[in-house]
Each structure stands twice: as C-alpha cells, then as structure tokens.
Simulated assay, not measured.
Amino acid sequence: MNQFSPNTQFSVFPPAVKYLLIWNGIFFLATVSITGGGWTPLGNLLAPFLVLQPLGDGFLPWQLVSYMFLHADFSHIFFNLFALWIFGQALENLWGTKRFLLYYFLTGIGAGIVQILVSDGSTIGASGSVFGILLGFGMMFPDNRIMLLFPPIPIKAKYFVAMYGLFELFNGLTRTDSGVAHFAHLGGLVVGFILIKLWKLKKPQSYA
C-alpha cells in the first residue's frame, strides 16, 4: 500500500476531517469571544502572528497556514466546518488521508497567496481550502445532487461548483469592499483544479 492509497473502509468522520474539525474548534474557542464578540485576550495576543497579513505589512510565512484555523464568528466557522465535513469525508475516503490532507493545505496556501497578491487587507478562515474541497467533490462526484437552500431545488455538483465559481469571480471584481475574501475562494478552486489534473485523480469507477 503506498502513501496515497484510498481508505479501505468508509468513515463518516475520517481522520483528517475529524482532526481538522477539532483543531479549528480549539482555535476558535481560544481566540474568539463567544459572549462579547471579537478576539479574546489570547486572540489579541496571537492575531498579529497568525492572521494572514499583507505583504510588507506584518506578513510572516507561516501565516499562510495559521490563517486557515482562525474564524471571525460562529456563523463563519459553522458554515466552513459543515462544508468541510459534508464534502471532505467523501474525498478523504476516496483519496486516502495523506493525499486529502496535502490537498487541503495546498489549496488553503494557494488561496492565501492569491489573496495577498490582490488585496491589502488581512485574511482569516478555512474558506480557501473549503472551496478547494468543493471543487474536488464536483470533479470526483459530478452527478451527485446538492440541495440548494434558496430556492430549495437539487442541482448536480458539477453545475453547482461552476455557478459558485462564476459567482465568486463576479463578486471579487465588483464587491471589493464586501469584507469577504472572494479571490481566496477563487484561489482555492484554481489550485484544487490544478492539483487534481497534476495528480491525475479520477472519478470513482461507478462515476466513469
């Protein structure tokens, strides 16, 4: 068995997804004030070192990883981790834990690089990696149906990913002051696509 062998038994909480959920939760509880909002005292102390800062304005290389474990509020972390679990478990079971974990961090790092190249603001959140995972799910399970909330209709994963990518591109170009790192999301999509093609990852047999 090589280091990138798929998991042989399906798990709802495979190792990488499980521990990413746990560590994101730990960082959130340590750095964000649940009652009053904003950073905790520890969060204020760590933020200059862990938040992804603009080039030449506090940037440190490890911030390309540490920013993925920081979130602004409960809704921010909830939707990121919910998507990580829903879509990530399928990819980790298909690819194996080591490849999935490498994919997760490379898409997040790529998203961070794109963001600091196009923005002069600070960035936090796992959204870049989550968008990479969404792209991976759309490519590996293109005909799986995802239920939209508004309107509540099912749509194939491949169309959902394409629509979301165009939506993020539009917002990145037109809503530069929205406070959302749209280009980080696009970076996660692009890096995910490159990795899947570079690694020559294929759909499961039943989806060929």
Rank of each mutant, 00 (worst) to 15 (best):
34 I>H: 07
100 F>S: 00
144 N>Q: 12
162 A>G: 02
27 F>H: 06
98 K>T: 14
60 L>Y: 08
156 K>E: 12
132 G>L: 00
173 L>I: 11
130 V>K: 00
172 G>N: 01
102 L>K: 06
98 K>E: 12
169 L>H: 08
22 I>T: 11
78 F>L: 14
66 S>C: 11
61 P>Y: 15
29 L>V: 08
72 A>D: 14
37 G>I: 05
139 M>L: 14
13 F>Y: 12
15 P>R: 02
189 L>A: 03
30 A>D: 07
78 F>S: 12
33 S>E: 11
105 F>M: 09
157 A>I: 00
179 G>D: 04
118 V>N: 01
98 K>H: 15
164 Y>R: 07
196 I>P: 02
150 F>W: 12
186 L>M: 06
108 G>M: 01
6 P>V: 06
10 F>V: 09
112 G>R: 00
202 K>R: 15
20 L>K: 04
56 G>K: 01
69 F>L: 05
56 G>L: 13
44 N>F: 13
41 P>Q: 05
179 G>T: 06
83 A>I: 14
90 A>W: 14
151 P>K: 01
180 V>F: 12
3 Q>G: 12
153 I>Y: 14
79 F>A: 10
10 F>P: 07
171 N>H: 14
34 I>C: 07
149 L>D: 11
153 I>V: 15
55 L>R: 02
30 A>H: 04
13 F>P: 09
53 Q>Y: 01
70 L>D: 06
83 A>E: 12
94 L>R: 10
104 Y>I: 04
106 L>G: 07
125 G>E: 01
157 A>P: 05
178 S>L: 14
199 W>Q: 09
44 N>Q: 13
149 L>P: 13
88 G>H: 13
2 N>I: 14
157 A>D: 02
183 F>S: 07
183 F>T: 10
89 Q>Y: 14
156 K>Y: 11
181 A>H: 08
116 I>F: 10
51 V>N: 09
119 S>T: 13
139 M>Q: 05
91 L>R: 04
19 Y>K: 03
178 S>G: 02
86 I>S: 09
65 V>H: 06
167 F>G: 10
116 I>M: 05
88 G>R: 07
100 F>V: 00
69 F>E: 00
84 L>Y: 03
66 S>N: 06
140 M>W: 11
30 A>I: 08
165 G>F: 06
172 G>S: 05
93 N>Y: 01
38 G>L: 14
19 Y>F: 15
133 I>G: 00
138 G>W: 00
57 D>A: 15
44 N>G: 11
202 K>G: 08
111 A>M: 05
114 V>K: 02
144 N>M: 12
168 E>A: 13
195 L>W: 03
38 G>R: 05
16 A>P: 04
191 V>W: 00
34 I>G: 08
197 K>P: 02
2 N>Q: 08
104 Y>V: 11
184 A>L: 03
157 A>M: 04
81 L>P: 04
168 E>K: 10
204 P>Y: 00
176 T>N: 09
70 L>H: 02
204 P>G: 12
34 I>M: 12
171 N>D: 12
157 A>Y: 01
70 L>S: 08
162 A>S: 09
2 N>L: 14
147 M>G: 10
102 L>W: 04
106 L>Y: 05
59 F>W: 13
45 L>Q: 06
156 K>F: 03
59 F>N: 04
165 G>P: 00
99 R>C: 00
49 F>G: 05
112 G>V: 13
44 N>T: 13
65 V>A: 01
164 Y>K: 08
113 I>E: 02
68 M>N: 07
118 V>S: 10
45 L>S: 10
